[in-house]
Amino acid sequence: MRRFTLPVVGLLGVAALTLTACQGSTAEAAPADPDAPLTIATIPVGDDPTAENPIEVFAELLEEATGRTVEITDVPDYLSVVEAIRADHVDIGIMSGFPSALAVNTGEVDALVAFEGDGKPVSTCVVREDSPIQTVEDLEGATVAFADQASSSGYFMPVYMLHEAGLEQGTDYEAIFAGGHEGSFAALEQGQVDAACTAIMLTELGAPMFPFADGEWRAVGESPAMDIQGAVLGRPSLDAETRKVIQDGIAEVFSPANAERLGAYGAFAAAPQTVDPKASAFTSFAEIAAVAGVELEDLK
């Protein structure tokens, strides 16, 4: 396993990527090289120095499953992941539902594998136990912390939940972006916000992912479920053999036996997988993305 960092200045054509679908790549697949490494672009995943880094665990397991060396390229944001794939810098990237849907809609990256949703609510908003806020509607006039604009569970789904309750961002409540789930929890803990919206899964994991003990917090509201919770995206120029090697490797890596080691990727390990999902599988995200007012170029 090898690891690199691809700076933003090394990414080409970022401005060309928008929510509007574009013509697909015309790059032709080169013949397969069985000794070539598999390359992955990733944003930072996992901040706990005492735990295994999920992307490094994924890379290790993928090497074991495929017999190929895996190279990890670190990039700063989801948009850079998409651009690295589109520009043929890397083979694949792993993203949650909404960034995946926006990327696939450009027509310039392929969805190799989709991880299906489990039909359960995705997100909630957390308040301190002594907060007067009891319902989603009570968030009117509140300051609400979100993870970031690229987060399915920490932005898209809770914003849609608030929209369904009649509350619009910037009009009925003030939104701040904390740079991640941990940041939104810290803002709530320090009294900087009235609520922090996050994944229900994180509240169930407890420390160190969720810093509040029982009796210190309450959940307010539940968002709808997501049809697709994440996807492995690939460059359209992948040759058929490498594409299959990756897809077979993904099926082996993301199994329930590996869920605990995969950490933040653990939910994908328990999810049914769809190989070569159609672009139409991601259309249910369009309405929610429109409510949030986010396009692909916003995912920084």
Rank of each mutant, 00 (worst) to 15 (best):
V220H: 00
A264R: 11
E182I: 07
A41V: 04
S152I: 00
S184R: 02
D88W: 08
L79E: 13
E63Y: 04
M209W: 11
A111R: 00
K300N: 15
A207K: 15
H181E: 09
M157D: 10
G263F: 03
H89E: 11
D148H: 15
S223T: 08
E64S: 12
V253K: 08
E63Q: 15
Y78A: 14
V193Y: 11
K120P: 02
A84W: 05
G180W: 06
T203E: 11
F146E: 00
A213H: 05
T171E: 15
A165R: 08
Q134V: 11
G263M: 02
G13P: 10
L17V: 03
Q190R: 10
P211Y: 08
L296K: 06
V136W: 03
T143F: 01
I250M: 12
G180I: 10
G183E: 06
A231S: 14
M157P: 12
A231I: 06
G183M: 01
L62I: 04
V253A: 13
T39Q: 06
D110W: 04
D110K: 11
G67A: 08
S280E: 15
A51S: 04
L162H: 07
M209L: 13
G180M: 14
A286Y: 03
G183L: 05
T203K: 09
L233N: 09
P7A: 06
G170A: 04
Y78K: 04
A267E: 09
L11T: 05
T135L: 07
A59R: 03
M209D: 15
G266T: 01
E56Q: 10
A240P: 07
V126H: 06
V127M: 01
A101Q: 09
P99K: 03
V8N: 13
P272C: 01
H163A: 13
P34I: 01
E56L: 05
P211T: 07
G206M: 07
M209F: 11
L112S: 09
F4I: 07
I40K: 00
K278I: 02
T242V: 13
L299W: 07
A30M: 03
D276S: 01
L233H: 08
V294R: 00
E204I: 04
I55D: 13
L205F: 06
T73C: 13
S237Y: 07
V9N: 13
E63F: 09
A281E: 10
I176E: 11
S237V: 10
T135K: 12
Y78P: 02
N258F: 02
C197F: 01
A59I: 11
F285T: 12
E28N: 04
T242R: 13
L62M: 14
T18Q: 14
A41W: 05
D138N: 14
G266Q: 01
I288M: 01
V75N: 01
A145D: 12
R2D: 15
S153M: 08
G24P: 13
